[in-house]
Amino acid sequence: MYIDRLLRLIAGFFTLLSLALAHFHSPNWLWFTAFVGLNLFQSGFTNWCPMMTFLEKAGVPKQPKATCCK
Results as ranks from 00 to 15, higher is better:
residue 67 T to A: 05
residue 33 T to D: 05
residue 8 R to N: 12
residue 60 V to F: 07
residue 23 H to G: 05
residue 52 M to Y: 00
residue 53 T to H: 10
residue 42 Q to L: 14
residue 70 K to Y: 11
residue 8 R to M: 08
residue 46 T to G: 00
residue 34 A to K: 06
residue 28 N to A: 12
residue 24 F to P: 01
residue 8 R to C: 02
residue 32 F to R: 03
residue 39 N to K: 00
residue 24 F to C: 04
residue 7 L to N: 14
residue 56 E to L: 03
residue 14 F to Y: 08
residue 36 V to E: 03
residue 64 P to C: 03
residue 38 L to K: 02
residue 31 W to N: 11
residue 64 P to G: 01
residue 36 V to L: 03
residue 4 D to V: 00
residue 2 Y to T: 00
residue 44 G to A: 10
residue 55 L to M: 15
residue 62 K to A: 13
residue 43 S to I: 00
residue 33 T to I: 01
residue 60 V to A: 07
residue 30 L to E: 01
residue 5 R to A: 04
residue 28 N to W: 14
residue 22 A to I: 03
residue 18 S to P: 04
residue 12 G to T: 14
residue 10 I to T: 11
residue 35 F to H: 12
residue 43 S to K: 13
residue 64 P to V: 04
residue 35 F to G: 10
residue 50 P to A: 07
residue 40 L to A: 13
residue 56 E to Q: 13
residue 16 L to F: 10
residue 66 A to G: 01
residue 58 A to R: 10
residue 16 L to D: 11
residue 26 S to D: 15
residue 3 I to G: 00
residue 47 N to M: 02
residue 42 Q to N: 04
residue 44 G to M: 11
residue 8 R to L: 06
residue 48 W to V: 01
residue 1 M to T: 08
residue 38 L to V: 10
residue 22 A to T: 06
residue 48 W to C: 00
residue 11 A to V: 01
residue 1 M to Y: 11
residue 1 M to F: 09
residue 42 Q to K: 11
residue 7 L to T: 14
residue 17 L to P: 02
residue 24 F to R: 07
residue 31 W to G: 02
residue 41 F to D: 01
residue 34 A to S: 07
residue 57 K to F: 11
residue 11 A to I: 01
residue 21 L to T: 02
residue 16 L to S: 09
residue 48 W to H: 14
residue 10 I to P: 01
residue 23 H to R: 13
residue 26 S to K: 11
residue 41 F to G: 02
residue 18 S to A: 12
residue 7 L to H: 07
residue 22 A to H: 05
residue 8 R to T: 08
residue 66 A to E: 15
residue 44 G to P: 03
residue 20 A to Y: 12
residue 54 F to T: 12
residue 14 F to P: 00
residue 55 L to Y: 04
residue 59 G to N: 06
residue 57 K to S: 05
residue 60 V to K: 05
residue 46 T to W: 12
residue 36 V to T: 13
residue 7 L to P: 00
residue 32 F to K: 00
residue 31 W to Q: 07
residue 64 P to I: 02
residue 25 H to F: 09
residue 29 W to F: 15
residue 41 F to T: 03
residue 35 F to L: 15
residue 31 W to T: 07
residue 41 F to E: 03
residue 27 P to C: 00
residue 59 G to L: 04
residue 5 R to M: 06
residue 69 C to F: 13
residue 29 W to Q: 06
residue 37 G to H: 02
residue 43 S to P: 05
residue 32 F to L: 14
residue 62 K to G: 01
residue 70 K to D: 14
residue 64 P to M: 05
residue 57 K to A: 12
residue 49 C to P: 03
residue 68 C to G: 06
residue 52 M to V: 09
residue 33 T to K: 02
residue 24 F to T: 08
residue 68 C to L: 15
